[in-house]
Nucleic acid binder design. Structure first.
Lengths: 333, 333
DNA sequence: TTAAGGTACGAAAACGATTTCGTGCAAAGG
DNA sequence: CCTTTGCACGAAATCGTTTTCGTACCTTAA
């Protein structure tokens, strides 16, 4: 900048103003300065700018994988991807924040503060981690995905409605004995379970306790075992809901091993709508969560709050998914 | 820091020294200062530090997805994950860099410079993009994965040897008619093709031209079509190499549609060793690339170069994978 | 006792930008 | 012709660190 000032015979103040499009600078000089900036290959130093303005134009992402495979979970990976795209479109970079800053375990909040991040998005984390609680209680602009904190913005997938829709769809196909292998206990699971029971109740289906069992999310082996348990029941369900699309790999194998066919002998549905669901054969019937919008809106809302802290109130936005009709649910009767 | 200085009745210089463990400060005051820092909840401002020291302790990641699904490609996602872990262990954060800085398309290099990044890792990109070339030609510490640039560090997966091993394995199982559906043309593909042909030649196998065909990486539909072509040949191969594990979903379906069984009627092998390969049934025989080490070493080498620019020379490191024996290759004869 | 050397600390400049406020000048108005 | 207004620009402070260099004091040795 000093060089530009020298080159154009003006002061650095003027250069700064010209570069930032402030008024208070003559049209002619302004153009000359912009010209010179290009000429000299000027790149603003964002550290200096951050120091002065307290704005870094970078957003922290909490993406801590419990099972160390978050990147490999298409649902989260996809949200992250679209979050990134929208953030970059609006001029923000994204940075992962971990629990430690350097060698010391200081927590997410310290990490975000030290980096001077403008805001934080919690995409994938253990929401009951005290470190996360600290973060939530802070005054930083924050948005969380798939978990609604009090008085903080959140973007939520419509887990309850999604589950209800799936049940209704399967019901429409004539199924009455419906089992559900749900994932580990989280807010998401809670919502899906509620949706499941609500729809069943509304449709007059009674669900035996043995029909609702648990497995680990995204873990085919665990789902394989759970499916096996269900198949061994005296009165076998006609349709099984898996915790997620990926687990279906384990589940369907358990079915094949029992000598049954899909969907002729038993129907199955997944949840998520990952790419693979459309590729496998038979194509999986599932609920497709709208990761494109989930990620995009999360970035949009967070940045909105960063840029207009006074006028933006925390809100919870729910994004609707859609039924992905595959070939794994048979029409009964 | 000013507060700490006031609190302890010393100057900011002394505080800075104490905090950074410089000598030149009394043992007693040093402890008092550290105490006070904790007390007051001091967090260093990294923008100010960066401004002064020209070090940000953050690393840029080029992770640009050609097909917009890089996050969803387990190979890249996994490398990124382990890269991140190692980088964080060493006190570096990671930030994605895009082609634009803010609204203007300035290229990766400008982006990295503006942010003052200490180094850049190219994990996933179009290596022939002129923007990438600019980056490579710069004086920034850089490491690239799966593509070796002149006079720059690179971490490479042993594609040639991996492919050779696979061919030898299949040969050992009695197969002589081996087909290969390779991916789009890249350096990686090139290496695998070389390995394939070399092994075949060494083993005295002649490969008909029709046996080597192309599909898109990570695209089951494309692989489905290619497989169909191979199955239609007058002299069908006894074993098909797919471009990658994920494409196998399409390939195996094509085989099933032709009324054939795996591995009884035809054998198949994949490449990558993604999680799914061990989960599907039959388990896929494939070459497992060591993404753990690829990511870890990449971070290690890059940081080494950042911290000791004089003594660290650019080098190319090849990481060995291993054969993952599944159930999709049958013993012939 | 005095000079030399070492130790603990502080003053101040610097990093590269932004921003406030003041100043000079030209145009406009009385 | 004088005053007021508005515009274009610059001087300088500032953001929070690090780092150089100077200084005061205390030891040690001659």
């Amino acid at each position: 900048m000093k060089d530009i000032a020298l080159y154009c015979g003006v002061s650095v103040s003027t250069v700064s103003k010209a570069l930032n499009g402030r008024g208070d600078v003559g049209e002619a000089t302004k153009e000359q300065i912009l010209e010179a900036a290009k000429e000299l290959g000027y790149t603003a130093n964002s550290a200096a700018r951050a120091l002065k303005t307290n704005r870094t134009y970078s957003i922290g992402i909490v993406f801590t994988d419990l099972s160390n495979s978050g990147f490999m979970h298409e649902y989260f990976a996809s949200m992250l991807n679209y979050f990134r795209m929208e953030a970059e479109r609006r001029g923000y970079d994204i940075t992962f924040i971990s629990e430690n800053m350097g060698p010391t375990n200081t927590g997410y909040l310290q990490h975000a503060r030290a980096r001077g991040l403008d805001g934080v998005a919690i995409i994938c984390a253990d929401f009951f981690d005290p470190m996360i609680q600290d973060l939530i209680r802070s005054d930083l602009p924050i948005i969380s995905l798939d978990h609604a904190f009090n008085n903080r913005s959140a973007i939520l997938s419509d887990n309850m409605r999604g589950m209800e829709s799936l049940v209704r769809y399967v019901y429409g196909k004539g199924h009455r004995r419906i089992a559900y292998i749900h994932g580990n206990h989280t807010a998401v699971t809670e919502n899906r379970l509620t949706g499941f029971y609500r729809a069943c109740e509304a449709l007059g289906i009674t669900v035996p306790n043995e029909y609702v069992t648990e497995c680990e999310y995204h873990e085919p082996v665990s789902c394989h075992a759970a499916t096996k348990r269900l198949l061994a029941l005296p009165e076998r369900p006609t349709c099984i809901f898996f915790s997620d699309d990926y687990s279906y790999i384990g589940g369907i194998n358990a079915i094949y091993e029992a000598g049954l066919r899909v969907p002729e002998d038993i129907s199955i549905v997944g949840y998520d709508g990952i790419h693979m669901a459309k590729m496998v054969s038979p194509k999986l019937t599932t609920w497709q969560q709208n990761t494109v919008e989930l990620g995009r809106i999360a970035a949009e809302q967070l940045i909105e709050r960063i840029e207009h802290p006074r006028t933006t109130l925390p809100k919870h936005i729910t994004v609707q998914g859609k039924l992905l009709e595959g070939e794994t649910v048979r029409q009964l009767g």
